[in-house]
Design a protein around this nucleic acid. Structure first.
Lengths: 190, 190, 190, 190
DNA sequence: GATGAATGAGATTTCATTCAT
DNA sequence: TATGAATGAAATCTCATTCAT
């Protein structure tokens, strides 16, 4: 008697991510997923109770992953701007390199699959970002607007940039990354 | 003799927009739409060949509408910044006041309902915005980056702001609109 | 106030006949018929109570027409064989020149559209043919088998010949008509 | 693990054949078929892509079956006439005993369900019959007409006979079979 | 646990018929 | 009478989920 197979979770998640950019969340059936993952439909139900649970689990995983990556290498001791910059770059790189995860999360956010609980949990994961903004404001380096507005601005701009870059297929040189960061920085700096 | 009723197009479109915020694009059936519109299911097929066609038509209509509104009152003779500002405000107001249309368009963009042709047509409608950016660059008022990047930045930031404002239910005072515009302007100004 | 238009009956019947070879009886909708006839769907219901009535009416018309033509020029005074021959030729020519009517009747015969009453009426129209066969048998020119069998044989063979000729697109010369008649005659002659 | 069930194909085909004589090809729904076959509607789509595919598959199966049976017991070494006779009898018996299959094929032939490919494949299966006719002509036992004409004549006559016999409910004694064969033979013999 | 056939509720679409003009 | 939009019942087909192996 075999135990649940961790590799299979990965295969299933991978399949969903691959499909979401092609078919969207709406047009993706359990049959599609199982086929893409190379397993039987029934097997999906060994690993997840139902479609909702599957989507929610992947959403949570992506979210956690994305936050972890964002703050990688961040040192609260260093001055604000370079710290903020490295986080900004982390997020940008993450979304570009994990474009499918990024799109998946976007699609989920306004879908009926995601429960209120999952949504709330996702929001909490953004806390460190709010804290960072607060620090910048305290140090009078960042405009003194509501943090919600600032975060929305920063994230919204970045999201669209990522799509732009991905869909036009343009390579992102260091210089270009710098200039786009400057756009953001000029917007929010005090 | 009964003729095809223009009001019915409006009723159908209205129904879809009402439903999309409640159920999402995925969870919206033709039955839901017809019921919401107060007509028989079969009647939907008098006006549209199928669900895809219906969604595409509404998408195109929203897109066109949104562009038309954006440039309302724009006078190319006036100096750049106030012109740009009025357009930016138009877009913001439009998305806030027609939040359902805005969400609908976002949901559509990565869905399998929208055809490549519709997507391309949507892109073309953004041309005036690109032209405006070009003018700003020519007058050396705006940073000399690729217009794609600048547009993505402006639009992305605004989209997220709109959602932020809508979901938190905060009222948008004139002062707040001004400060958010300043965020944008500071980002892109030369 | 206009009266029912005789030309319209013809247009409707013509449309059905044109469609039956293309789409078959099964795949033919009232919409198809009205479009092909160049009238509105609703108008069909001015002329016929419903689809069944329409099909039955056309079936009856075809049947009557086909019988009328079969015995055209037949003179009961002339000797049997030439009389039988001319009738046989009449039937063959009719089916070839009115191939659509012929196919339509075949399709109807085993369809749920045709009522038992219509079917029975159709059978009665074949009476003269039975009478003819009886005469041939009385004159000991034709095999003394049950008339049903003989008629089935003659008609069945001819029907298949007609299709053969029509679909291969071969032209039917006088000589070929004669040889095919001889096939039939050799079969049934005493 | 459950595997696709060959018996289920048979059940489905059986259901269609049972229904076609009752309701005709037109009036037969997928719901009717599944009910008659004692399975769920959805299950039909496990076995066939759609209604067309189902009808085409059954048509092909009937055709193949009918040809196989026709030449059962045929020995090319024996003289022509008894060989031809045994095949003729095979075909007649097959159509009588599998009347539903026979009617189904007839209904299909001019229906929109059957694709050109299926039609062509059906034609090819008739080749052995053409070869047989050719042999008879070579041995100068059969009239020297185009084989198409002869086959059409033989088959057409038989088809109508079969219907005649079936619908009148008359039992087919050996003597009657012989006399009807003689009709056919007298027609085509040199 | 793994499989994929089986299920049936529900989605999309069709179409004979009606109805307002 | 003529029109063709409107209807809704019924047809086809899909798909999340279950179940037998």
């Amino acid at each position: 008697m075999k135990l649940k197979d961790d590799k299979k979770y990965a295969r299933i998640f991978g399949a969903v991510l691959k499909l979401v950019t092609k078919k969207g969340l709406a047009g993706m059936t359990m049959g599609d997923i199982s086929k893409e993952a190379g397993i039987a439909t029934g097997t999906l139900y060994v690993y997840f109770d139902n479609k909702d649970a599957l989507i929610n689990a992947l959403f949570a995983a992506c979210r956690e992953n994305s936050v972890m990556v964002s703050f990688r290498g961040y040192d609260a001791q260093q001055p604000f701007k370079p710290g903020f910059r490295s986080i900004w770059m982390n997020i940008l790189r993450y979304r570009l390199h994990n474009f499918e995860e990024f799109i998946f999360q976007e699609q989920c956010y306004h879908s009926p699959y995601i429960t209120a609980a999952t949504r709330e949990k996702a929001r909490q994961l953004a806390e460190p970002l709010y804290a960072l903004i607060a620090r910048g404001q305290k140090e009078q380096l960042i405009k003194n607007l509501e943090p919600d507005i600032l975060v929305a601005f920063i994230i919204g701009a970045m999201n669209e940039l990522v799509k732009q870059i991905h869909y036009t297929g343009s390579t992102l040189t260091k210089t270009r990354m710098n200039t786009t960061f400057d756009l953001c920085w000029d917007a929010i700096k005090a």
